[in-house]
């Protein structure tokens, strides 16, 4: 009694799979012959940075509410995945925390950069360390392993435990270029997400790491560097130097539908509202620009 249904299910499924697969590739080629609706629906997929995902996802949802002719899919997967996939042409938009020029193996010339937000990062410590301010040189020494006890920088007699970010992650790249000056960080714990780092720093005595501004809460202490506080205003004037852009890359110039969405991302509607709600800094508020070689110009 089971068997006939079994066979038919199998057959039906392989057929359904073929059909659906066909459908999806059709719609991506914008042919709507099999579609019951007359409207052409353009499919846009954005893949990459997990940090940027919430912003783009929310913006995409709002955008689709008024633009019925696009179907946006926003996914994470990491900046590396985003850049590789957009370069291969597998997706329309690659979200990244780092400049394409900074990652080896990417032909940055083929890609067009669309900066959609700025993210500020700050060193954070466990509140028990008793440290609130360090100099840039001290911070560098902490992360390169030269300073190993908090009393060397005016805190308690407590061992420093460094929690770094995953190799190749955008956050680490930004921190490295702004703080380490090309020196090698001490091999230590690595975590790949803001949430985990926040939890670990909050619970580990003597812990130090760095977080995007939006993940700093009352359980961790954000450090000032050279007495400059990590605030949005200081980032906008580059007084606070640890910040980076959030990029949305396209391969060559984007097509009309993608360009429309990217324009929406930089419109005041997103920049003035969503960007701030999600803890980013609007691209329009920046008084300086930074290029891939980390040179800042007014």
């Amino acid at each position: 009694m089971h068997k006939k249904t079994l066979v038919s299910t199998l057959v039906a499924f392989s057929l359904a799979g073929l059909l659906l697969g066909g459908c999806s590739s059709n719609s991506s080629k914008k042919s709507s012959s099999s579609d019951t609706k007359a409207a052409k629906v353009t499919k846009i997929t954005a893949v990459g940075s997990t940090a940027l995902q919430p912003l783009v996802e929310q913006a995409a949802q709002d955008y689709q509410a008024t633009n019925k002719d696009v179907n946006l899919t926003v996914q994470g997967g990491g900046s590396g995945t985003g850049l590789s996939q957009v370069q291969q042409g597998a997706v329309q938009i690659g979200n990244s925390d780092i400049f394409a020029e900074q990652s080896s193996g990417i032909k940055a010339k083929q890609l067009v950069d669309h900066r959609v937000a700025v993210v500020g990062m700050t060193p954070v410590v466990n509140p028990t360390t008793g440290v609130t301010n360090v100099t840039m040189a001290q911070l560098r020494d902490i992360f390169t392993g030269k300073i190993t006890n908090w009393k060397q920088v005016g805190g308690k007699d407590q061992k420093i435990s460094v929690i770094n970010r995953a190799q190749g992650s955008g956050t680490r790249a930004t921190f490295k270029s702004a703080v380490l000056e090309g020196k090698k960080a001490v091999t230590s714990q690595e975590q790949d997400s803001n949430g985990t780092v926040q939890k670990l720093v909050a619970s580990t005595p003597g812990a130090v790491s760095y977080l995007a501004f939006s993940y700093v809460n009352t359980k961790v202490k954000a450090l000032s560097i050279n007495n400059v506080k990590p605030t949005d205003t200081n980032v906008e004037s580059n007084k606070w130097t640890i910040w980076s852009y959030e990029h949305m890359y396209t391969k060559g110039q984007p097509d009309k539908a993608t360009a429309g969405f990217l324009k929406y991302m930089t419109s005041s509607k997103v920049q003035g509202d969503l960007v701030q709600k999600l803890g980013y800094i609007s691209i329009h508020d920046m008084k300086v620009t930074k290029n891939a070689k980390n040179v800042v110009t007014k």
Binding site: G80, Q88, G105, I106, A166, G168, E190, Q191, D192
Partner: peptide
């Protein structure tokens, strides 16, 4: 593997 695979570029040595 899990920590780093999303941050590496396909086809390069780290990946």
């Amino acid at each position: 593997l899990t920590t780093n695979i999303g941050n590496t570029i396909m086809g390069t040595l780290p990946n």
